[in-house]
Structures are given as structure tokens and as C-alpha cells.
Simulated assay, not measured.
Amino acid sequence: MHPSSIADKMFRFVVLFAALLALAAANTTQVSQCQHNQGALPRNTHIQGCTRPPCALPQLRDAIINMEFVAPRRMTSMRTLATAYMRVGSTTIPVPYDLGANSVTCNHLTNASCPVSANQTLRYTLRMFIEAFFPVGTEVTVEFRIVDQSNAPVVCVRVPIRIVSP
């Protein structure tokens, strides 16, 4: 094989690899470890329309949060919980947010169904409707956590959000 063709192939590989890394980064939202709840960070979290918090979430629309995580153990069911942490002066007030039917995590796995096995890679999509009673301009930090059938933590992410007009 001619040396210039080897160099050409290596260059193409490097360009393709860099493009794949950029694509992966574009599908990731910067989230942090939860402060008020336990749970590991997922492998990947993507909030549609947001790569860098605070994430702008429009009223009267679904916020769509995709997560990929590894099941830490065999689980027969899972539940997703959301808590907004509002600052009032020097005090932080936890405000649980009812996800309704969307809290049944197993119903929203996109590559598996419950029960799940230990070490199984799971992809999950959460839809959270942003109600009108959240005033435009509200800024809070939300912790989304998944717990198993015995309320043991599975994963947890923390992300600042800002409510915007529809």
C-alpha cells in the first residue's frame, strides 16, 4: 500500500471520529449530581433544545428528557420523581412536581421493558408538561430521580431551568 494512501485513510478516520464525538456532545445536556437526593448520574442526559443550563422550557409544552443509564440491579419496576428547588431569600424550598402517568418509568423505556436485569443498558424518555401556573421567568433547579420498587435510588440528575413563554 502506498504511504500517502495510508495517511489519507488515517486522516479520514480522525475526521470521522471527531465528527462522531461532536455529534455525541451535541446530544448531551450538562447536568450535575443531585444534592438533595441519592442516585448515580446517568451515562447520558439530553433535554431537548438544551445543551447548557439553565434550560429554557416553554410553558404549555412538554419538556422532553432522554436518559441512558445502566440498571444497578434487577428491578421489577421504577418510578420517576421530580422536585423543584426554589430559592426564597436565603432559604431553599423543595416543591415536588407530580409527573402523573409519566412517573411510571417502565412505560417510557425505549429499548427494554420491566423487569430489567442488572447491568442492562436502558434508554428512557420522560415527558414533563410545563403547566401555566409556572410563571414565565421562573428560575429553579430541578432534580429528576428514578427509584426502584423498594424506593432505592437508581439515577438522579440536577439541572437549572427557566420557564419561557410558549
Score class of each variant (00 low, 15 high):
residue 79 R to Y: 07
residue 79 R to S: 13
residue 79 R to T: 13
residue 80 T to F: 03
residue 80 T to K: 00
residue 80 T to Q: 02
residue 80 T to P: 06
residue 80 T to D: 06
residue 81 L to G: 04
residue 81 L to Y: 12
residue 81 L to T: 12
residue 82 A to Q: 02
residue 82 A to N: 03
residue 82 A to W: 01
residue 82 A to S: 07
residue 82 A to D: 01
residue 83 T to V: 13
residue 83 T to N: 05
residue 83 T to C: 04
residue 84 A to H: 07
residue 85 Y to E: 03
residue 85 Y to A: 03
residue 86 M to P: 03
residue 86 M to S: 08
residue 86 M to W: 00
residue 86 M to H: 10
residue 86 M to I: 11
residue 86 M to K: 15
residue 87 R to E: 13
residue 87 R to L: 08
residue 87 R to V: 02
residue 87 R to Y: 11
residue 87 R to G: 06
residue 88 V to E: 13
residue 88 V to K: 15
residue 89 G to Q: 10
residue 89 G to P: 07
residue 89 G to K: 12
residue 89 G to F: 05
residue 90 S to P: 06
residue 90 S to E: 15
residue 90 S to M: 13
residue 90 S to T: 15
residue 91 T to K: 14
residue 91 T to A: 13
residue 92 T to Y: 14
residue 92 T to Q: 13
residue 92 T to E: 15
residue 92 T to V: 15
residue 92 T to R: 10
residue 92 T to S: 14
residue 92 T to I: 15
residue 92 T to W: 14
residue 93 I to Y: 11
residue 93 I to E: 00
residue 93 I to S: 02
residue 93 I to D: 08
residue 93 I to Q: 09
residue 94 P to E: 09
residue 94 P to D: 13
residue 94 P to G: 07
residue 94 P to I: 07
residue 95 V to M: 08
residue 95 V to S: 03
residue 95 V to E: 02
residue 95 V to G: 01
residue 96 P to L: 10
residue 96 P to A: 06
residue 96 P to N: 14
residue 97 Y to H: 02
residue 97 Y to I: 10
residue 98 D to F: 00
residue 98 D to I: 09
residue 98 D to A: 08
residue 98 D to M: 06
residue 98 D to S: 08
residue 99 L to N: 04
residue 99 L to I: 10
residue 99 L to D: 07
residue 99 L to C: 10
residue 99 L to W: 04
residue 99 L to Q: 04
residue 100 G to A: 04
residue 100 G to P: 02
residue 100 G to E: 07
residue 100 G to H: 03
residue 100 G to W: 00
residue 100 G to I: 05
residue 101 A to D: 15
residue 101 A to P: 06
residue 101 A to V: 15
residue 101 A to T: 10
residue 101 A to M: 13
residue 102 N to F: 14
residue 102 N to G: 10
residue 102 N to D: 12
residue 102 N to P: 00
residue 103 S to E: 11
residue 103 S to F: 05
residue 104 V to T: 12
residue 104 V to I: 15
residue 104 V to F: 09
residue 104 V to M: 11
residue 104 V to Y: 05
residue 105 T to R: 06
residue 105 T to N: 11
residue 105 T to C: 09
residue 105 T to H: 01
residue 105 T to V: 14
residue 105 T to G: 08
residue 106 C to M: 11
residue 106 C to T: 10
residue 106 C to S: 09
residue 106 C to N: 05
residue 106 C to K: 08
residue 106 C to R: 09
residue 107 N to R: 12
residue 107 N to Q: 13
residue 107 N to F: 01
residue 108 H to Y: 15
residue 108 H to L: 07
residue 108 H to T: 09
residue 108 H to A: 03
residue 108 H to W: 12
residue 109 L to A: 05
residue 109 L to N: 01
residue 109 L to H: 06
residue 109 L to K: 10
residue 110 T to H: 08
residue 110 T to F: 08
residue 110 T to Y: 06
residue 110 T to M: 01
residue 110 T to R: 15
residue 111 N to L: 01
residue 111 N to I: 02
residue 111 N to A: 07
residue 112 A to G: 03
residue 112 A to I: 05
residue 112 A to F: 02
residue 113 S to E: 12
residue 113 S to V: 05
